[in-house]
Design a protein around this nucleic acid. Structure first.
Lengths: 165, 165
DNA sequence: AAACAATGTCAACATTGTTGACGTATTATT
DNA sequence: AATAATACGTCAACAATGTTGACATTGTTT
């Protein structure tokens, strides 16, 4: 049996996604503006925080923006010492990205804001319902990208195994 | 019983929402570019299509942008005859927005692209799981806005009752 | 008449995206 | 060793979309 795909319902789904994303991303804006940063900076902080040692090329693939566009915000984050680079051990062309203590602190603060939003919104949902939501969002991601996303989830979980629990 | 709110899971949720929105909104871009339009134009076409007779002030509240920003794209859509205005019957200061035949055609084409994306992604989900996803997205919307969103859903359903079925 | 409301408009500017061209290390290939 | 390819950085110009501030128009309310 399948979900009900009447036109009304699909239009409502589109709008729900729009409004949810609108309200969800608006949360950390205040904190970011205090540093003269925007959402582009937030995205970099987030993904470097979650994937320490991330290469520029990988970040470009995640964000799907041009390297010039990324470089503009990355440069600021490096100059202002929120992010630093390390030359690759094997291949020294590669630059691995990490957060400084200052960068990690900001990333964590932004994460905490979003944690509260999500927790507040989804409290009252059963684990099964929550799992359905996650599965649904994953399915909305382009097929080719789903593996990459899940792969990074695994790596992050491996990385944080033992240190958190 | 509640959903599992460990840090890993919440970070993953944030990223799922980011990637889902990224891939979902990218779909209609090609079609839009053919007309020299962008996502801002798409949003106007979508909400006017769904809420014929919508006023400018309401559209501003939906999109959460400045009137100057909205006016720029709205002006183009009106000049190029995708949208037209009608003076309010009671209060003649108000401008009610409607799509022309050309505008409706484009809006429908963009809608069809997104319908396919969603249907393709969510086929295989049970109606219950689908309902969980919709409920979850709704909950992510700011409390004050949820009523407005649901109110417009109701109006749209009333408007289309009888004409579709 | 005066105040208020809904909309439109002009101008200046910020953020974030784009493309094109070029430079610099570093690594891989021939 | 020479050449090509890779990973990254950078300069410049430009486009889309957001912002604020100021002001005009028109219509409604008091």
């Amino acid at each position: 049996m399948e979900f009900d795909k009447d036109e009304q319902g699909l239009y409502e789904f589109i709008e729900l996604l729009f409004f949810a994303y609108r309200d969800f991303t608006a949360g950390p804006d205040g904190e970011l503006m205090a540093f003269g940063f925007g959402r582009a900076h937030h995205r970099v902080l987030h993904f470097v925080s979650r994937n320490p040692g991330l290469m520029v090329a990988e970040l470009l693939d995640i964000l799907r923006v041009s390297k010039q566009s990324l470089n503009r915000v990355l440069k600021q984050l490096i100059e202002e010492k929120f992010v630093f680079q390390e030359q690759g051990a094997g291949d020294r062309r590669r630059r691995h990205l990490f957060l400084t203590a200052k960068g990690q602190e900001l990333a964590d603060r932004l994460g905490a804001i979003q944690f509260e939003q999500i927790s507040g919104s989804l409290k009252g949902f059963s684990p099964e319902a929550y799992q359905n939501i996650c599965d649904g969002l994953l399915s909305l991601i382009a097929d080719d990208d789903q593996k990459e996303v899940l792969g990074r989830f695994d790596e992050a979980r491996k990385r944080n195994r033992g240190s958190d629990e």
